[in-house]
């Protein structure tokens, strides 16, 4: 395997010194690759992304190794991380309604971001801002740079958020549920836009979503997270056609599709709190394939071919 753009090894997010909210997440993101992080809310997807950015909320800390294009970010100070954020890793957040500063013109924030990382004149930065808005499909970008967020629709605001994340050409984009807060028709547009932009720029992306449909459409590989850890990972097509982990299978069975003859199979119970994880496999209390071993020994993520799996009794 050639050099990964982003190499995450043994990443945990720790609360109060001992509770691991995200535990031991490892993945490699190749150049131009889109990796999906899929799971229910509370599975640790967003915290994984925030920890990569060095933007964890107060009280949480990160352990493990993060390498970005070979550069180890582990020991980076806040000042050093500021230079990485927006320049080498960009992030798109879920809610475009609250994610943009209500009293700043969008162009002003775009210009500020360009000049933070590039030594260019204000006029040049402004040109880049207009170009960036045009690239993400904002109509009449020359006028829109002077707009305030409240003058734009939700879809347009999310396009602005994407422009903001992309404007300094980072090699990695973290997208945290970028379409969840949008109308269905807009969702498809934004999904396509993100794929096109990633491809056009040769960037890589980690896409966090609970929507398997979005993952299927966009991602080269998918990692399924449960209770803070990755339980299964593999090439998207393979993983969705032939899920081996019972949790992945259950997620697929619970996802709506156009086949009305099939009733949705809800997963019984709720994910455990990181403060009260069961012994053994964290999924075993909800698992229909649980055996004795599942409640005593935690399965380890094991590589098999191009996939990885953590389960004592997987589907074939």
């Amino acid at each position: 395997m050639d050099e990964a753009v982003l190499d995450v090894d043994g990443l945990s997010v720790v609360h109060g010194g001992d509770t691991r909210i995200v535990q031991d997440v490892s993945f490699r993101l190749g150049r131009g690759e889109i990796l999906g992080l899929v799971g229910e809310s509370g599975s640790g997807k967003s915290l994984t992304a925030l920890s990569l950015m060095g933007l964890l909320p107060p009280g949480l800390s990160r352990t493990g190794t993060v390498r970005l294009r070979g550069e180890d970010l582990t020991g980076h100070s806040e000042k050093q991380m500021e230079r990485v954020r927006g320049a080498q890793i960009g992030m798109v957040f879920q809610d475009p309604m609250t994610g943009l500063n209500p009293v700043r013109r969008i162009g002003s924030v775009l210009v500020e971001t360009v000049r933070r990382h590039q030594d260019v004149s204000r006029a040049a930065a402004r040109e880049k801002a207009v170009e960036a808005l045009a690239a993400v499909g904002v109509p009449s970008p020359g006028d829109r740079v002077r707009a305030y967020p409240h003058q734009l629709s939700g879809g347009l605001r999310q396009r602005v958020m994407i422009a903001l994340a992309l404007i300094n050409e980072p090699s990695v984009i973290l997208a945290d549920e970028p379409t969840t807060a949008l109308d269905t028709t807009i969702q498809a547009q934004i999904t396509q836009l993100m794929r096109d932009q990633i491809q056009a720029r040769g960037a890589s992306m980690v896409l966090i979503t609970h929507d398997l449909g979005v993952a299927a459409e966009l991602c080269d590989r998918v990692a399924v997270m449960y209770s803070g850890g990755v339980v299964e990972e593999g090439p998207t097509r393979e993983l969705l056609r032939n899920p081996r982990h019972p949790y992945t299978a259950a997620l697929l069975a619970a996802a709506p599709n156009f086949d009305r003859s099939r009733t949705l199979a809800a997963i019984p119970g709720a994910p455990p709190s990181p403060f009260a994880r069961p012994d053994g496999c964290p999924f075993h209390p909800r698992c229909d394939r649980a055996q004795d071993a599942c409640s005593t020994k935690e399965p380890v993520l094991t590589v098999s071919g191009s996939a990885r799996l953590a389960c004592w009794n997987p589907h074939d």
Binding site: G99, P102, V103, R104, R116, M161
Partner: peptide, 28 residues
């Protein structure tokens, strides 16, 4: 606020975050 996180994710320094993102809102 979310928009402060957005600014930090774009690499804004602490100084910029406070002076140009937080204060204009807080002073209103």
């Amino acid at each position: 606020e979310d928009f402060v996180r957005t600014a930090r994710a774009a690499g804004a320094s602490r100084h910029t975050v406070i002076l140009r993102h937080v204060l204009p809102n807080a002073l209103l």
